[in-house]
Structures are given as structure tokens and as C-alpha cells.
Design a protein around this nucleic acid. Structure first.
Lengths: 146, 146
DNA sequence: GACATATAGTTGTTTGTGCAACTATCCAAA
DNA sequence: TTTGGATAGTTGCACAAACAACTATATGTC
């Protein structure tokens, strides 16, 4: 049998991403329990801004694998929450540079720890080499289709 | 280093499910190109009904890992498209049994082939044993959190 | 049989996504 | 210098997801 033939019964969960959905839901519940008033999607934007802020919305699109309208609205909501600020670029007036507020800077440590714990919970009992293989496969899938 | 410690830079795509998002988008585009007027989410409900229809909405919730309101609205939209029909159960009047229409039965072969091709495209160049490991890891993640 | 509790499904609200159409700005070639 | 195409971002629309609150029906216990 060829490498690339799946039995039909196994197609489904790959496509729907049951595993990543389960992780995202658990993480969201933990944020809520901790009294953190942000969504996973908002957090995923902050995540990239913590690595380096002052990015354009287009750069956030690429980093988060979302389209421009999605980022527009996520930034809208993050601005409403006083977590980011749009600053027009001096060089190119089409561009908004997105900067973290102090409030958002304070969130990094706590949320990253919760995310870390959630992944450890998800992956407990899974040997490191198998996690590594899984990640590599998912990366190839992404590269094959993006 | 322990099994369960991810480097921070790798957290993100696991949680957001970039790979499954990429597969779902590609599949949606193929459905559109083929002139098939259904969403991936609708298709994922049909997928379980093709295996066996006459299931209750609650059973579809469990099968698709969605909550009740989500299924209510997916079934609403599938009914509008004349792909399924709600039939009240005779035994228990709280329950709707969901049956496929002839139109929906016609969709099975074509959509399953497109899904198959899409997954083959996603997983080409990935050896079967690595796919197997990846699936097992994702299953454990799901079981650890569900 | 009456009542408390559990289960099945619906509805409202907020948030997010994908697509198409739109505005504003930049840049390069004539 | 003007003009045409590319790029950055916004808005409108349809669909979907999570949560809470709700209705209707079933069931177990007294």
C-alpha cells in the first residue's frame, strides 16, 4: 500500500483538528478560571507581539496564518481591551505598527505558564521522540498546503 | 529534560492547529472549485451520517466533538440545503433523528474522493509509519483532554 | 400520581473566519 | 509627472463556535 493512503475512517479527525481543538478549549477554560479576559485567538496575536512588537498587521497575518480581515478585528478587540495600540508607520502611511501596552506586557508570564501547563497535560505520557515526529509531520502538512 | 517540555516557540502551532486549518482550507477550496455548495463543517456532519443516518443531534454532538447549539445550527443549514431532514423520534419525543436526503446521498462519493485527494496531497512525502505515530500522538492528546 | 432531576434541543449574544469589494498609499515605468 | 499595478488595511456578509438561559419531555423516587 502506498504511503499516502488513509483509511477513510481516519480522515476525519485530521481534517477537523480534534486534538488542537481540545487543547484550545482547555486553554481557554484555564484562562477563564484564572480570570483572564482574553480569547485564545487574541492570545495567539499577543504571543507573536511578545516575541517582538511594532509589527504590521500584515506581518501578524503571516505569523498567525490568518487573513487580513481577521487580524483587523482581532486588533480592534485587543485595542478595546487596552492591550495593544495601533501606531501609523512614519515611513509608509499604509501601515499600522502594533505595540503592546503595559497591561499586555504583564500578561505574558502568567499566560505562557498556563499554556505550558496545558500542553504538558495534553502530552503527558507521550515520549519526547514521538512528539518530535508528530511535530515534523504537521510541519510537512503545513508546508505542502500553505 | 522531561518528556513534556516544549520549547515555547513550538507551543503555538500545536494550539492553533495550523496543519488542520491548512487542510480544511484546501478542502473547502476544492469543494468550491467543484461547485459543491457546502462548508467543511457541514460536510463533517454528513460524513458521520453517511456511516449511519437516523442519528440524534446529541449523537452528532459526540461524533463531531461539537456542542448542542453548534449542531442545531449546522442541521438548520443542512435542512435549508435539502441535505438532511429532522424526524421526531417515536419513542422519545425530545429527540430528533437526522436522515439524509437523496441529494446528500449523491454527494458522498465525490466529496470523499476530494477529501482523500486532499489528504494525500497534504501527506505526500510523509512515510506511512510517521503518519501512524502522528495520529497516535494526536489521539493521546485528545484522550488526555476530552 | 407528584415532584425533582436529568436529558434533548433551541435561541440570544459575543467572538472569530473566509471571501469579496472597497479606500488609501506606495512604487515603477512610460 | 502621470498613470497603472501592487500592497496595507477596512467593511459587509454568511457561516460557525462557545456560553448561558430557556422549553419540552422523560425518568426515578417518594
Amino acid at each position: 500500500m502506498s504511503n499516502n493512503h488513509f483509511k477513510k475512517g481516519e480522515l476525519y479527525s485530521f481534517i477537523t483538528g480534534k486534538a488542537s481543538t481540545a487543547i484550545a478549549r482547555r486553554l481557554q477554560k484555564r484562562f477563564n478560571t484564572a480570570g483572564l479576559n482574553i480569547t485564545i485567538e487574541q492570545w495567539s496575536v499577543l504571543y507573536h507581539l511578545w516575541k517582538e512588537d511594532g509589527r504590521s498587521q500584515q506581518q501578524l497575518c503571516n505569523a498567525t496564518f490568518r487573513d487580513k480581515p481577521s487580524i483587523t478585528r482581532l486588533v480592534d478587540n485587543l485595542e478595546k481591551l487596552n492591550l495593544v495600540k495601533r501606531v501609523p508607520s512614519e515611513n509608509d502611511r499604509r501601515i499600522n505598527l502594533i505595540y503592546l501596552t503595559k497591561q499586555a506586557q504583564k500578561l505574558e508570564e502568567e499566560t505562557m505558564q498556563i499554556a505550558d501547563e496545558t500542553l504538558n497535560e495534553a502530552l503527558k505520557t507521550v515520549p519526547a521522540d514521538r512528539i518530535e515526529i508528530c511535530k515534523e509531520v504537521l510541519q510537512i502538512v503545513y508546508d505542502n498546503l500553505k
